[in-house]
Design a protein around this nucleic acid. Sequence first.
RNA 1: GGAGAGAUGGCUGAGUGGUCGAAAGCGGUCGCCUGCUAAGCGAUUGUGGGGCCAUUAAACCCCACCCCGGGUUCGAAUCCCGGUCUCUCCGCCA
Length: 426
Amino acid sequence: MLDAKFIRQNPDVVRQALVNRQSATEPLDEFLELDEARRRLLTESEGLKAERNRESEEIAKMKRAGQDAAAEIARMREVSDRIKELDAQVKEIEERLDLVTLNIPNVPHPTTPVGKDAADNIPIKTWGEPRKFDFDPVPHWEIGPVLDILDFERGSKITGSGFILYKGLGARLERALFSWMLDLHVQKHGYTEVFPPFLVNRQSMIGTGQIPKMEEDMYRCNEDDLFLDPTAEVPVTNIHRDEILSAEDLPIYYTAYSACFRREAGAAGKDTRGLLRVHQFNKVEMVKFTTPETSYDEHEKLLQNAEEVFQLLEIPYRVLLLCTGDISFAAAKCYDVEAWAPGVGQWLECSSCSNFEDFQARRANIRFRPDKGAKPEFVHTLNASGVALPRTFIAVMENYQQADGTIVVPKVLRPYMSGVEVIGKG
RNA sequence: GGAGAGAUGGCUGAGUGGUCGAAAGCGGUCGCCUGCUAAGCGAUUGUGGGGCCAUUAAACCCCACCCCGGGUUCGAAUCCCGGUCUCUCCGCCA
């Protein structure tokens, strides 16, 4: 969330941000109105409280001196009643104010291009040459069942559409992918591996910004008010919720595997075939906590770490700089990494690499002390998928397919598959 | 799931209605002293909000915060109710 003071002092900046994001500006107007009312009521209430505190001390003194304080007590009873009224109003306003503030998105960074929707995202880089096939490459949803490594029908039977059963070397390939990615980030890029809970509470979801805006898209356990992780970003960023870190601790790098669960409400029917858009998937995530000064340098390095996954897999990819109309609610700047999938003939988003600046840190109250004895400041949080599995799995299958229908295993994954070089039939 | 105990500042820990934003110790910071390391002495040391956001900030004043939310009271860390978490024991279970 944004700093209330910042909004109050820079309403025009926030208004422009909302316009650039194609978002409604009413929440801003409501904020300004409620904020003004809150301060007005607070001033009155606190003035009365100051009086009450003074007077209560007098009463205590009088009682100790054996004097009668009945008149003072009677008067203070009235003051207290008035305070109670005012505080009730303040509380109501603050509740609404919190809700409004939680629904105002981050202000995009100046380098985030202004644009309407995904069509205005800017391609900034392409890596690798799409392979030339001497046969027609087929989509993964045809390869998978033939090789008996993906079973879409049984996944649907067990749970429903969008839930996949991986089998045999398919299951093995999936496991190889995330094991290898974790090792890469831990051993080569210096991240600390964590294995978080897959269910998180409401406070954690609010901390990273999925709630309240996206609550309908989350799987939820009503009895316990817990949510299934939509991404490891949630539990991992919340590791340091309500903490004050010391400057020497920063930057902190975490990487985590988690299963991810998304209802994908409203996305039904679009690009949902095969593994393109599923309700449960595996992902390796990278999360950083940094000082404000270094976050944009760290953001570039984070992108490189995500890109390297595809470089080592030898899969062509491109990088997009997202525009204001397509960037997520909490992000100030975001790159997408899209892998080339020749079977479906599409670039597939496999990683989003975001700098949230202090937007999540303020929500989750994650601070650091710049120097010993200095006032705590909010950290900057960043994260990137490193990377999401299903579409990477697609890219591996479709880029490495052969004319006979088999799949060559990328070299870097072979040690993770007991040396298997080709996934064949049977 | 049942029973019991507990939750106080960076940490340990005292405090059962007013003089408590909170003793004491440890730790941190600053200064003094000591011919080294160490010790000693003195001072200082929480967070958020409002007043003023007008160019930042400081100073100053006020309010709130002793796990969270309600209540009683002129006045609550302290009394009452509800909840959360931690620990111990019992039960159940992969």
